[in-house]
């Protein structure tokens, strides 16, 4: 089962590893594309999540993800057996 997945905390780590960005104020409702990252860095960030969690987010679902919460919900749907932080 593993421990609870905290997408917000993971996102902060990913943004730092992928784009050298510190995001202390990140919230679930933060709009991802408003963080100032370019589209390539954002996709690298998505890939970071996929690798860490062993999921594959279908490409066409990406266009519906706006906020960190949207990302969390999308991943949660793909991993129904795991627990997620709110």
């Amino acid at each position: 089962m593993g421990e609870r997945i905290d997408v917000v905390e993971m996102f902060k780590q990913a943004a730092f590893e992928v784009d050298n960005r510190r995001l202390p104020d990140l919230k679930p409702q933060t709009v991802i594309t408003a963080l100032g990252m370019d589209s390539v860095a954002i996709m690298e960030l998505v890939a970071w999540f996929e690798e860490k969690l062993g999921v594959r987010i279908p490409d066409e679902q990406l266009s519906k993800i706006r906020t960190v919460k949207d990302l969390r919900d999308t991943i949660a749907r793909l991993l129904p057996d795991r627990q997620f932080a709110a």
């Binding site: 594309t33 990406l62 519906k64 949207d70």
Partner: peptide, 12 residues
């Protein structure tokens, strides 16, 4: 181009 970039569905 297909709709594959993050959060851009309306613009697409």
């Amino acid at each position: 181009y297909p709709p594959v970039s993050l959060g851009k569905l309306d613009a697409f």
